[in-house]
């Protein structure tokens, strides 16, 4: 599940936790077909640029997920008429997203509980 070289630590802002890039991509694409740059821009906009992603790392992830059958790709045209490769989530991808989301939520909840604990009882 840990995608190789999908994380990088930036000088400023938050680095990416392992395994989360796939989740972000799936979630982003769940709104509709997008090309790679748009995916990145959407993540930036949504996180108000607090996450730093090595942009190139997006593409091996996209292709890996395409190969796994979570995404499908086709060449289309942007609004400005430029040729770009668009990705969209397949049915298998949606199932994967749901599963990953559930897992993430459980993890986040557990992590929060531990980190907010007021001290250990003997």
């Amino acid at each position: 599940m840990v995608p190789p070289s999908s994380t990088s630590t930036a000088e400023s802002g938050l680095g990416l936790l392992p395994g989360t890039l796939d989740l972000f991509i799936l979630k982003t694409l769940s709104w509709g077909p997008m090309h790679g740059l748009a995916v990145l821009q959407w993540i930036e906009r949504t996180t108000k640029q607090s996450l730093q992603i090595e942009e190139g790392a997006l593409y091996p992830a996209l292709h890996r997920m395409e190969e796994k059958g979570w995404l499908e790709a086709e060449w289309g045209h942007t609004d400005s008429g430029r040729r770009a490769k668009f990705y969209r989530v397949t049915a298998a991808g949606r199932r994967q997203l749901a599963a990953e989301l559930a897992r993430w939520n459980r993890y986040a909840k557990a992590a929060t509980l531990i980190l907010n604990a007021k001290g250990a009882t003997p």
Binding site: S5, S8, E54, G56, A57, Y59, P60, H63, E67
Partner: peptide, 14 residues
Amino acid sequence: FGDFGRIEHEVEQY
């Protein structure tokens, strides 16, 4: 974007 050659290579494998 990062290391273009490396990324290109990875993508191509997939």
